[in-house]
C-alpha cells in the first residue's frame, strides 16, 4: 500500500513537472509549483519524514507560492518563447541525468536497512537521544543539538534573505489602506480570515512548543505565524497588517532571533563549555539540553516569522 502511494505520488510529481515546463501562463505555473510542493510534502509523509513534510508544506506550498504569485502579478503574466532552440540545455540535462542514473546503479536499494546511512551515525542518534537529550523527536534533537550549528547557519541564511529583500525591495509603510475592490466584496473570506487568524497563531505556538514531542519546531512555527499575518493582510489590507506589526519591529525581531540563538551558544562558552554546548546551561545536562533547545527554537521562530513578513511586505509594497 505504502509503495503504491509512493509510486502514484511520484507519477503525479512527474506530470506536474512536465506541465510546468510546457505551461506559458506564469500564474498557472506558480499554482502548479504550489501543487508540486504539496505533492512532495505528501511524499515526505509517506517516507516517514513528518517534520520535513510540515516544513515543505508551509514553506514550499505556502510562502514560496505567495512570493511567486506576487512576482507574477508584478511582471508580465505570459512567458515568451525562447529565442534559441533548446538543444544545448537539452544535451546538458541529458548528460547530467545520465550521469546520475549511472550513479544510482551502485546505490544501496531504496529502504534497505543494511544501507550505510542507517548504520553509522544515524543509529547512534536514535539510540542516544533519549539518554543524552531526553527528547522523543530525534529530528529535533539532531537539528537543535547534535547539529545545532547547522541550524544556526540556517537561521543566518534566513536572516540573510531578510536583509537581502530589505536591501532590494525596501519597504513602504502604507498610510492609506489599499485594498483590491475584489477582496472587499468577498465577505466570506474576510469572516473566515477573522476566525482563522487567532487559530493560526495559536497553532503556531503549539508547533513551536510541541516540537520536542511531535513534528514541528521553530521554523515551522515561525512560518505558520507569518502565514497568519499574511492571511490577515490579504483580507484586511496591508495597511492594517502593518499597523499591527510595523516594519521597524520586524527588523528588530529578525535580528533578535539570531542573537538569542547565538547568545545561547556563547553562553555555553562563558559557562566553560564549547560553543553551543547546552549541557552546561543547567546543573543536569539533560535539563540543560531542554533549556537550550527551547531557547534556540524560540530564537528561530522569531527570526523566521519576522523575515517571512519582511519578505512579504517587501513584495507587496511594490505593487503600486
Amino acid at each position: 500500500m505504502e509503495h503504491l502511494i509512493d509510486i502514484v505520488l511520484l507519477g503525479l510529481l512527474m506530470i506536474t513537472g512536465f506541465a510546468i515546463v510546457r505551461m506559458k501562463s506564469l500564474l498557472a505555473v506558480a499554482m502548479l509549483t504550489s501543487i508540486y510542493s504539496l505533492l512532495s510534502a505528501s511524499l515526505f509523509v509517506v517516507l516517514d519524514a513528518v517534520d520535513v513534510a510540515l516544513t515543505e508544506a508551509a514553506i514550499g506550498a505556502g510562502i514560496s507560492t505567495i512570493l511567486m504569485l506576487a512576482t507574477v502579478a508584478l511582471t508580465r503574466d505570459e512567458e515568451k518563447a525562447p529565442r534559441h532552440t533548446p538543444l544545448l540545455p537539452l544535451a546538458v540535462v541529458t548528460v547530467t541525468g545520465a550521469a546520475l542514473i549511472y550513479g544510482t546503479l551502485d546505490m544501496p536499494h531504496y529502504g534497505d536497512p543494511a544501507a550505510p546511512v542507517h548504520q553509522h551515525a544515524a543509529s547512534a542518534y536514535l539510540h542516544d537521544t533519549p539518554g543524552e537529550i531526553g527528547v522523543p523527536n530525534v529530528v529535533t534533537s539532531v537539528l537543535a543539538s547534535y547539529r545545532g550549528y547547522d541550524t544556526l547557519g540556517e537561521v543566518t541564511v534566513i536572516f540573510t534573505a531578510g536583509a537581502g529583500v530589505l536591501a532590494l525591495l525596501g519597504y513602504r509603510t502604507r498610510r492609506r489602506n489599499i485594498q483590491g475592490p475584489g477582496i472587499r466584496k468577498l465577505v466570506v473570506l474576510r469572516v473566515i480570515a477573522k476566525l482563522f487568524f487567532p487559530l493560526i497563531l495559536l497553532f503556531a505556538l503549539y508547533v513551536l512548543f510541541h516540537g520536542d514531542y511531535g513534528p514541528g519546531g521553530g521554523f515551522q512555527a515561525g512560518v505558520i505565524f507569518a502565514t497568519g499575518f499574511i492571511l490577515y493582510a490579504l483580507a484586511f489590507g496591508l495597511g492594517n497588517a502593518q499597523r499591527v506589526i510595523h516594519h521597524p519591529l520586524l527588523r528588530i525581531m529578525a535580528a533578535v532571533g539570531v542573537l538569542i540563538y547565538a547568545a545561547v551558544g556563547i553562553e555555553g562558552i562563558l559557562l566553560g563549555g564549547k560553543f553551543l554546548e547546552y549541557g552546561v546551561l543547567a546543573d543536569d545536562p539533560v535539563t540543560g539540553q531542554h533549556l537550550g533547545i527551547m531557547l534556540i527554537e524560540l530564537g528561530v521562530g522569531i527570526t523566521v516569522a519576522a523575515v517571512m513578513l519582511i519578505i512579504y511586505y517587501g513584495f507587496v509594497s511594490r505593487q503600486d
Binding site: V52, T55, T71, V139, V142, E154, V157, F219, I311
Partner: peptide, 27 residues
C-alpha cells in the same frame, strides 16, 4: 534515519531564501 530530515529542513530554508532573493531581483 533522522539526519537527512534535518539536512533537508535546513535545505528547504535555503531554498526559500534563494527563491525570495531571486524573485526580489526579478521584481
Amino acid at each position: 534515519n533522522p539526519l537527512p530530515h534535518v539536512l533537508i529542513l535546513t535545505a528547504i530554508v535555503v531554498s526559500l531564501a534563494t527563491t525570495a532573493l531571486g524573485l526580489a531581483l526579478v521584481v
